[in-house]
């Protein structure tokens, strides 16, 4: 359960970035969470909603884009969606695969005025 500290990181980063732009209120924060990021979206939303009250972001919504895991085979270069975390190329059965997406833990944008 480290989602609370992740939520705190998100709020602080957006607070700093929005204030430096002279924004008075942030209404929405968009984040990307990969399925391999070890972050649970529900727990993150819960943590965010608890913390935002004390951070003057009472009306701010957290929009989570969940990113599925995809990989590319290093042998035949086939790109595929990883099901059940099995990193085996469905085309040539090689297990030498590079991660393409799935580890995201990123703030994409924020909205406010």
């Amino acid at each position: 359960m480290h989602e609370l500290s992740i939520a705190d990181n998100i709020i602080n980063a957006v607070k700093e970035a929005s204030q430096s732009r002279g924004m008075l209120a942030v209404s929405k924060i968009g984040v990307r969470i990969g399925s391999l990021s070890s972050v649970d979206p529900d727990a993150l939303t819960f943590g965010f909603d608890v913390l935002k009250r004390d951070q003057g972001m009472m009306d701010c919504e957290l929009a989570i884009e969940f990113v599925k895991t995809t990989a590319r085979c290093t042998k035949c270069l086939y790109e595929f969606k990883v099901e059940d975390c099995v990193f085996v190329c469905p085309q040539c059965a090689s297990s030498q695969c590079d991660l393409v997406s799935g580890q995201e833990l990123e703030i994409a944008y924020f909205e406010g005025e």
Binding site: A13, V31, G112
Partner: peptide, 15 residues
């Protein structure tokens, strides 16, 4: 007016 700012920042960039 609502403005959208793209920041593309890793949450754990400080770490």
């Amino acid at each position: 007016m609502t403005e959208r700012v793209s920041i593309e920042k890793k949450v754990l960039s400080e770490n």
